[in-house]
Write a protein that binds this DNA or RNA. Structure first.
Length: 558
DNA sequence: GTAGGGTTAG
């Protein structure tokens, strides 16, 4: 329940401008040249500002002008800082406004609300709403929408909905942006159906459904792999004369790609072109990525050529997807060529790109080269993230460079990078491989202590390790626990157990598990059967082995 | 001068 009375909001106001971290910006003395340049809207016009330092220095110069420029001019700079995601800077500059007696207006306040929202400080956002009322301004739809967006951004969709009810009850008229925001909030927390219900409820009453609302829900359905349902909504919106735009098409194309229906994805691509909706860099990136993920690098390169021909500039995502494709088909050198081409074309490689290359190199056992790329990141001041470290650590372990791997684990801690479940799984794998099973068990305990929930990979690695290390009993305990807790066991889990049972000569138990896994909806694969067959042959149980081979043939596994 | 939707890695 949201308790947002105006008086409560007003009490929050006092927190609003009590920041102590005001940077000590040195205003640069104004000069005639500055006045000229300012009045002629040249380099101090905020429309041209695209870096933080320029924005800040322009702001301070403006503070020195007499007469003081209007709040609109200052607000423009704050807006440009927000566009660059420099929320803290915008907030501290707004403090300077106050110190200089320049009164913010409703637009300035909306921008500040947005800043606090992005910093996760919703209390400050609401205290600004209180301040707006206290200063005699009227909050407008944009103010309210910004607040609702902020609540959604901070995982408070329920509060956003309550806030909506609250302001509507007070007689406010909200608009399409308001409902687009709420629908997106619901979708992002996985509540696609409620989002669709909201659309149905408001449509034609509180606001008309529009292309953004439909596209948002279509996107959510696509990501849930409900592509048919998504397509139905696409048909529905057209029937309602709401024209799909490039984002609608991109969402659908992405949806078809992730369910492997590339033919349909390209069909939609043609459809959008026919409808005069121009594909953009997202469209091409989605297609390049989908082809790359299927190992169809040649086709992906054709799409690259197509986009260039269409005048759409490939970006870091395009190149990243291509590099990933080449890595997948074990052509890391070509991936590196793409990397170099990208740099040559002036596209700055992101952490993501380095991670792709490092992963490709590690998978191809070229760990030294991977390490070189890792070092290059430092030289280029690109900060490695958890993925970079995890990838390289995994590669190092698998290449038996154990001590360097552990060094990197320490380094992660040192620079304050939180080790996550995937990193832990690599460590676990390494410990199991070395048969350090007690340490492996201790590591899983440590994960839980740190509130990092083990996933099925964790358990699969541990169970496999325990079985192979001759500790079947331990493995069985964990296996039973997973079953009783209702975990969705994978074929890997069963295969690890089957292997453990066979190793101890417990064939009947292994066979029982084989049928039990099928009963619980986990289809045995070649490995499940092969494991048992191999052990049976080893023990001279030829008849049993042959029976099982026949079963494999019947099931089409041979 | 301020508010809603979309693509890449372990």
């Amino acid at each position: 329940m949201l308790s947002l009375s105006v008086s409560k909001l007003l009490t929050l106001t006092r927190y609003a401008f009590s920041f102590s971290s005001i940077p000590n910006f040195l205003p640069i003395a104004s000069s005639n040249t500055f006045l000229l340049s300012f009045s002629s809207h040249s380099r101090f016009n905020s429309n041209h500002i695209n870096n933080v330092d320029d924005a800040v220095s322009s702001f301070h110069r403006m503070l020195c002008i007499n007469p003081t420029p209007s709040i609109v001019q200052f607000t423009k700079i704050l807006g440009s800082l927000v566009k660059m995601n420099h929320y803290r800077t915008a907030i501290s500059l707004s403090h300077h406004l106050e110190f200089n007696g320049i009164k913010p207006d409703i637009v300035t306040f909306s921008i500040l609300i947005n800043c606090y929202c992005h910093l996760g400080q919703m209390n400050f956002s609401f205290s600004i709403l209180g301040k707006i009322l206290k200063m005699g301004f009227q909050e407008d739809t944009i103010t309210l929408n910004t607040l609702m967006k902020g609540l959604c951004l901070n995982n408070k969709v329920r509060e956003a909905l309550h806030f909506h009810d609250h302001v509507v009850a007070k007689g406010f008229q909200l608009n399409q942006v308001s409902y687009g925001t709420l629908i997106n909030g619901l979708c992002k927390m996985g509540e696609t159906q409620p989002a669709l219900q909201l659309l149905r409820r408001i449509d034609g009453k509180l606001a008309n459904a529009d292309v953004v609302m439909y596209s948002t829900i279509i996107d959510s359905l696509c990501k849930d792999k409900s592509i048919n349902y998504a397509y139905e909504l696409y048909v529905e919106m057209i029937a309602k004369r709401i024209s799909p735009n490039v984002i609608t098409f991109n969402n659908l194309i992405y949806g078809f790609c992730i369910v492997g229906q590339l033919k349909e994805a390209f069909g939609l691509f043609r459809e959008m072109v026919l409808k005069n909706v121009n594909p953009d860099v997202y469209t091409f990136n989605i297609l390049v990525d989908a082809l790359s993920k299927e190992g169809k690098v040649k086709e992906a390169m054709n799409v690259l050529a197509m986009m260039i021909k269409d005048g759409v500039k490939p970006d870091v995502v395009t190149y990243g997807a291509l590099m990933d494709g080449y890595c997948l088909v074990n052509q890391v050198n070509k991936a590196i060529n793409i990397f170099n081409t990208m740099v040559h074309k002036g596209v700055v490689p992101s952490v993501w790109c380095y991670n792709i290359i490092i992963n490709g190199l590690c998978k191809n056992k070229m760990v030294d080269e991977a390490t070189n790329f890792f070092k290059e990141m430092h030289n280029k001041m690109i900060v490695p993230d958890v993925v970079t470290y995890s990838t390289l650590i995994d590669g190092l372990f698998k290449s038996r460079k154990i001590s360097y791997a552990w060094e990197l684990v320490d380094e992660m801690h040192l620079i304050g990078l939180q080790v996550d479940v995937i990193t832990y799984n690599s460590l676990l794998h390494a410990l199991c491989k070395k048969n350090h099973l007690d340490q492996a068990i201790a590591l899983v305990m440590k994960m839980k202590d740190q509130d990092i929930q083990p996933n099925m990979f964790t358990y699969n690695i541990l169970i496999d390790g325990l079985c192979k290390g001759g500790r079947l009993k331990n493995a069985q305990v964990i296996f039973q626990e997973l079953l009783s807790k209702g975990y969705h066991l994978t074929v890997w889990t069963y295969n690890a157990m089957i292997n453990g049972l066979c190793q101890e000569g417990l064939f009947d138990e292994a066979l029982a598990l084989l049928s039990r896994m099928e009963d619980s909806g986990c289809i045995p694969d070649v490995v499940s059967y092969e494991t048992i067959v191999n052990y049976l042959f080893q023990k001279g149980e030829r008849d049993k082995a042959k029976n099982l081979l026949r079963e494999m043939i019947v099931k089409g596994l041979l």
